[in-house]
Amino acid sequence: MTGASSLAAPVVAQVTAIEASLLAFVVLTALATALARDVLAAVIVFGAYSLGMAALYTFYRAPDVALTEAAISAGVTTVLLLLTLAKTTRIDHDAVFESVNLPAVGAVGVLFGGLLLTMGDIPAVGSPEAPVWSNPDVSQWYLSESYAQTGVENTVMAVLAAFRGFDTFGEAVVVLAGGIAALIVLHREVFA
């Protein structure tokens, strides 16, 4: 991946079988979600998409993200989307897939190609030279100091609740504000 001359070959060499199959699964489910004609089918396939993403996060050793994906997507998102669908009318379709708008596909393809050109400059997944890993002031400092300073073994939680505690407080308040905004949008004064 470091050599800009051979763009594709090192990538293929690094991708293992499990990565390739998981990525194929995720891409296929994402495409099917976007293209499904029936909304309920799209919701169901979106659930499958989150399954693949959770496995991918797990493989990349991000268990906290995988756990969030599992809890939120399997437990919450599908249910909330279904409840929303229950309030809508159903339109019966014969076709399984949405008809594709070719100019839109072209525009997305051009954007995708442009983004793909930048891939050569992005460090490989798990590379020790990646700035996000090798940065001595941020990542390495957290990894070496978080247990000593907080006594918490899970560095992610130490960063979230202690070192970035004020950000987390803001996020928590945003969640609460989201609930209040839903109340306002739906013209309710009580949740339950």
Partner: peptide, 24 residues
């Protein structure tokens, strides 16, 4: 993570299957 999925996949299944009856 596997345990969470095992527990919550059940929720997803009953949600979708109950929704399938009379579309919610």
């Amino acid at each position: 993570i596997a345990l969470v999925y095992a527990l919550l996949n059940f929720l997803m299944a009953i949600a979708i299957s109950k929704f399938t009856v009379e579309r919610g």
